[in-house]
Simulated scan of single mutants.
Amino acid sequence: MAKPETPSLLAFERKLDCSDAVFSQTDGNNPEAQEQPVTVSEKSVRGTISNRLKNAIANDPAKLDAEIEKANLQTVDVAALSSGCDTLIARFTLKVLPFDGSPYVCNGAQYRGRLLETATQYLQTEGMQTLAERYAANIANGRWLWRNRMGAENIRITVSNKNDSVTVDNAKALPLDRFDRPSENVAKIAEWIRQGLSGEAFTLLSVEARVQAGYGQEVYPSQELILDTGKSNKSKVLYQTGGKAGMHSQKVGNAIRTIDTWYAQDAAFPIAAEPYGAVTTLGTAFRQPKQKNDFYTLFDNWILKGEQPSTEQQHYVISVLIRGGVFGASGKE
């Protein structure tokens, strides 16, 4: 029998399906305070020239003064709590879909059979516990709040599943750089996620964070990518949905799947599960093909050659499949 080859059509659906995170606000010191939306408004500012200048200008006092005199006019979007509110409320939902290794699209029957056999062996041997605990930790520690987490005095996160819920009273006390043994509350969230990934139960989590940021303080929704800059006179456009500031579902999802500490033995921090370990904010791919620890090398060796990676790298490969994506071979070099 001929050896299976990577099919030209191979794609997986994402199994962690996030909604956008929508922002509201309230006064945390007033139990009777009404919840209000966080809105996006425009602000026009006159900034200073602060970019790195060419040596010819920087070393000539007259030219430098002339450059500094130029106005750096900007129109930007801004989102902030009102003067009567000190607490940001962010909410999103997370649907957890079953994972059994089946691709969404695959045009190679023999390859599909080998893939399902490999995934079944992983599920029987390792199961979804390790990945579920890491996803749960990133929900409970508020990583998905991004910059909003940094400036908060305290964060309380509540996760609900059907008629049950758990609350993490001090999310900032949970670490971002490692995955400790989960507490009772985090373990319960992990069990809900494990049941969803294993297909034992339908899992739809509702997540709410109450972020004590300070009266009138700025908050940070997602920033829109303006592809056609000629149609916008703003240098920064913030995301809003239904009249409320919000965070893209992709940004929330990226934080939840920031579980990969297996890219190096001395990994200082986790990165998102990506085929090449890409972290755009650092401009670095932590999983290089030349090091043979990228997704495609590990995945192909596992499926096509039967070379089983270490347990940690198996977790990584499966987490990328849970992320979803198109992984077929083009046939063109």
Rank of each mutant, 00 (worst) to 15 (best):
C85V: 10
N148Y: 15
E126K: 15
D65C: 02
S102K: 13
C106H: 10
K95H: 06
T118P: 00
A137N: 03
L88N: 06
L131P: 01
R143V: 05
G142K: 04
N141C: 09
N59I: 00
I49K: 01
D60Q: 04
G113D: 09
R114K: 14
G151I: 00
K54C: 08
R143F: 03
N148Q: 03
L53D: 01
A71P: 11
M128K: 04
S44M: 09
Q121K: 10
S50I: 05
A137M: 08
T75A: 03
R46H: 05
G108D: 15
N138V: 10
L97N: 09
A66Y: 03
R114T: 07
R46A: 05
P61G: 03
N59L: 05
C106S: 07
N148K: 04
A56N: 15
L73G: 06
G47W: 00
Q129K: 14
I139N: 11
P103L: 01
V76E: 06
E67P: 00
L115Q: 14
R149T: 12
G142M: 05
G113V: 13
K70R: 11
D65K: 09
A71C: 14
A80S: 12
L88Q: 09
K95G: 14
I89D: 09
N59M: 04
I49L: 07
C106W: 13
A90C: 07
F92G: 11
P61M: 04
A62T: 14
A137I: 04
A90W: 03
L131Q: 08
L88C: 02
L123Y: 11
E117M: 12
L73E: 13
G101N: 07
K70I: 03
V76R: 11
Q124M: 05
A119G: 05
